[in-house]
Design a protein around this nucleic acid. Structure first.
Lengths: 196, 196
DNA sequence: TCCATTTGTTAACTAAGCATAACATCTGTT
DNA sequence: AACAGATGTTATGCTTAGTTAACAAATGGA
């Protein structure tokens, strides 16, 4: 499998994302608490995320320094404009992913929710935009959608052992085969090494 | 936005994933190096991932303890059966996600690669299976696919300000609006607090 | 065989993110 | 006004995952 992008050193882009998974949830917690309760305090955020007040206090201080969170005159927590923008964008991505997994892929609701929760903060604006347009196009064509999803959930495997289908061919191997197929005996270059 | 699942404490499932992002790449590095070079050593993995030999050495020791990596009689690195299974599954997910983003959503290749790289290890088996079937069904219907993707890339916005489309209605708000819409004035409960 | 280089390991440090627990400071009731 | 309880902060420690730098050991050429 050569197409897979292991060969770069860009894999660490994962870490220098604009917001980490936990930051995403701090922001959404404030948004959610203010919507449901009208206000958000450190304790509320901690309770909402099921973490200690100490952890919440420290994290929220950093978010204030980063300019994503501030306090109102009564010292309740608020999102800044930037924080608000981020929170909304992540919530937006969550909805898109969740609906894609559940409604289109037919994944069980709880699993769809978990997957969406894990990926919501990682989706690029381009993919988010694409997914929105895709879902709109797909869901606006009722018959077409149903035909497609029915076919998908049918029993016929489109790609047989022959490995000839539009999905597999560009990859060079059949993606329908379970990921654990042949162990591929590699050539071992001889090199002297004592056993420890 | 009430449907968003902030209200649980399950959000930390992100951390106790079977494999972390970095573990995923250690496994794939070994797989990739053995395929291209025939062998993999600590130094090779470090070079491949662009990290220090020290970091690679420590991480690989832990992976040996976890039973995902072992050594051959000449002390070259190998994946165990379990490590192989995980690596293949992650590579599999990468291909599916990458093709979905690039070919279906029309996201630029490099962005599609980055997004797939960030999410490959987070996709549940259910979503992975669903995505496979979906791509197969979609790509097996050429005309249908083209119509759909053309529509998606067209200029018409399906959901107007009225907020009536099959995508937005169950959510209760229009997903086409930019995530930064109205700041939604929350009611602030009065509570005495001195200003510091 | 000797020795320089490469390779692998280990120690000490950083940073993010959590936990506990002690302490400080509000809040509101009596 | 005083005190109990709720709330916020700070100190210490853990884990993961990286860094440098020092050291140990294996490799292979002269």
């Amino acid at each position: 499998m050569v197409l897979v992008a292991n060969d770069s050193s860009h894999w660490r882009a994962f870490d220098d994302n604009e917001v980490s998974h936990s930051v995403a949830h701090y922001l959404m917690a404030i948004d959610s608490l203010r919507t449901s309760n009208g206000y958000a305090r450190v304790t509320d955020v901690a309770g909402h995320l099921n973490i200690s007040r100490g952890a919440a206090s420290l994290a929220l201080s950093q978010l204030k320094e980063r300019g994503l969170v501030k306090e109102d005159p009564n010292r309740f927590l608020l999102l800044t404009e930037e924080g608000e923008r981020l929170a909304r964008s992540i919530e937006h991505n969550f909805v898109l992913l969740h609906r894609f997994f559940e409604d289109v892929l037919g994944v069980p609701a709880e699993t769809a929710r978990e997957d969406a929760c894990k990926m919501e903060h990682l989706l690029s604006p381009e993919s988010s935009e694409g997914l929105l347009r895709f879902l709109q196009a797909l869901l606006s064509k009722d018959k077409l959608t149903k035909a497609l999803i029915a076919e998908m959930n049918g029993d016929e495997t489109i790609c047989t052992q022959s490995g000839r289908c539009p999905l597999c061919e560009p990859v060079g191997e059949c993606l329908s085969l379970t990921p654990i197929d042949a162990p591929a005996p590699h050539e071992t270059r001889k090199r002297k090494r004592s056993a420890v």
